[in-house]
């Protein structure tokens, strides 16, 4: 009898519990756009010029972002979707251009957002993804394993007006013994992208939509001019080139605020 009474009390109190209409969780949806000189990319069209003066075209861009963190104006932070926090973006696959994070977000004002470009060394393990398209991003075991952080494929026109392919591929780098050619160490080339001037507010029950815009030209300038004629078309086994790309990568993204629900 006592058990029934306690149970009734419990359920009764549960039913009487009301949600605080002033403090209903919000959500974050990220959208991805890819531009050159502030205009959406026209793929496969040789109409762009980078800072080094290389005419080029883009065929496709495929990459991972992970570990999205929001920074509140009270200096606390929230890592979103810690369990499923790696998102694949592919300009050939429209469904990948939206990343709906599932974690609840307590409404409030945020100073900024940051994320990892690529995958950190703890998670970037071979066989993490068995299904395509992510599995097609695998990075060979010999070169460090795991996955490409990015495949940016296209073509550029060299100084002799010859069109050449480039595979601007980023992932784990290698240090080679110059005498033997053997790999002596691996380098984690993932990096954090912070968008400091990206303050925004999430209201009660709001699904905030933010757009991350990649400006491809930024990969090739600031702080380093990246000259295809110097680096050539492939960089998977060229840590110096990947280091250059990594340092340029901090300025590649900017944030747009969309209309929210």
């Amino acid at each position: 009898m006592m058990v029934i009474f306690i149970a009734a009390l419990f359920f009764g109190s549960a039913c009487n519990k009301t949600e605080d209409p002033e403090n209903k969780a919000g959500k974050l949806h990220l959208y991805f756009q890819h531009e050159i000189d502030s205009v959406p990319i026209e793929f496969d069209t040789l109409k762009y010029t980078n800072a080094a003066g290389n005419p080029y075209l883009v065929t496709e861009i495929q990459y991972f972002i992970s570990d999205v963190v929001l920074y509140r104006n009270d200096k606390t932070q929230q890592l979103l979707d810690a369990g499923e926090d790696i998102h694949y973006v592919d300009t050939d696959l429209p469904e990948t251009l939206t990343y709906k994070l599932t974690d609840d977000i307590v409404p409030g004002t945020f100073d900024s957002i940051s994320f990892t470009f690529g995958i950190n060394e703890v998670k970037n393990q071979s066989q993490l993804f068995v299904n395509p398209p992510e599995s097609n991003m695998f990075w060979p075991e010999l070169l460090g394993g795991g996955y490409h952080y990015m495949k940016l494929n296209g073509k550029w026109k060299d100084t002799g007006d010859t069109i050449r392919p480039f595979n601007f591929h980023m992932g784990i780098g290698q240090i080679y013994d110059t005498a033997t050619g053997e790999i002596t160490a691996y380098v984690q080339n993932y990096f954090r992208v912070s968008l400091p001037n990206s303050s925004f507010t999430i209201s009660n029950a709001e699904e905030l939509a933010l757009t991350l815009v990649m400006d491809v030209n930024q990969w090739f300038e600031a702080p380093h001019n990246y000259d295809f004629n110097e680096w050539g078309g492939m960089i998977m086994q060229n840590q110096a080139a990947m280091q250059t790309a990594r340092e340029n990568g901090h300025n590649v993204f900017n944030l747009l605020k969309n209309n929210s629900k």
């Binding site: 071979s126 695998f138 060979p140 394993g145 996955y147 595979n167 998977m236």
Partner: peptide, 18 residues
Amino acid sequence: FTTEEGADCFHCHGGFGN
């Protein structure tokens, strides 16, 4: 098979990861 500066087959034809 699996190096870009080698024969670079793996981007289209897979390997251990695919």
